[in-house]
Amino acid sequence: MLKIFTMLANLVVYDWLGMEKGRHLTEALHFFIEDTTKIFFLLTVIIFFVSIIRSFFTPERTRRFLSGKKLFLGNILAAMLGVVTPFCSCSACPLFIGFVESGIPLGVTFSFLISSPMVNEVALVLLFGLFGWKIAGLYLISGLLVAIVAGIVIGKLNLERYVQDYVWQIRMGEVQEAVMSWRERIEYARGYVKDILRRIWPYVLGGIGVGALIHGYVPEDFLLRYAGPGNPLAVPIAVLIGVPLYSNAAGVIPVVQAVMSKGLPLGTTLAFMMAVTALSLPEATILTQVLKKELLIIFFGTVSVAIILVGYLFNFILS
């Protein structure tokens, strides 16, 4: 079905503009037209349906469902719920407080906090549209795995004393939950699509633009020389570069797709994208309100190590 966007780009570039096949500019423009139309179409349609699903998974409901769940099973459920529960990093603190206040173990809470931004719908749509369903699936599964394992590790370390003390004193207010009608769900989904598109469209266009230039102009084996399987440090370096790029998954993924086509191994690519979505400095700053420095460092360290291991694992399996 997505062939229609290749056909559209063919039509515009080769027929209407009459550009010559195989030239740098032609290929770059073709890539740009195909990918922008495809990605905006997918973002609109998929985020709409994801939002409808999400309207059934409010944070309050997730919290009620997870309270009283033990380590392991709780971590698995939390990581999976992290995918469907709406979340933005500015809500990380109230959500954290709400979770621990209702008796959800710290490790389970972290599994949720890790998977929710990492396995988000924008990243998955872009991965599906640009890399195909296999890599999107790999990302989903390894993202869940990182969230589950890192959460279990943090849970096992008994770090409750490194949560800011006031957090344990807070009493959560009660809200009566409004039951949404189908009309309201559709309205909510439409609003959500608009909100997301308005925020990310410049990044998507910019990312695809840079990706198009890379596709058209960078030599095929360029990255193999620097970041290929021969460089054992490529994975941790990719993770380090990914941290400051946060909240720009939309802009980064198209560039990464272009870069991968120039020889970046899949494991390194996945690790990089996970670092972009899961490890963010702004989120770390926000979380200092509820976590003491030690716990924040352990949190970031554990997630980084897990992501790096995923990178090595896929590079190893696929080489």
Binding site: T58, C88, S91, P94, L95, V175, Q289
Partner: peptide, 28 residues
Amino acid sequence: DMAKIVGYGVMATPGIVVDGKLKGSGKL
């Protein structure tokens, strides 16, 4: 202030309160 935000029962920001009553949260 986080304690106040959570005190209203809000786990997803932003939230809006009119005359002390929570009207909605988690949405622009």
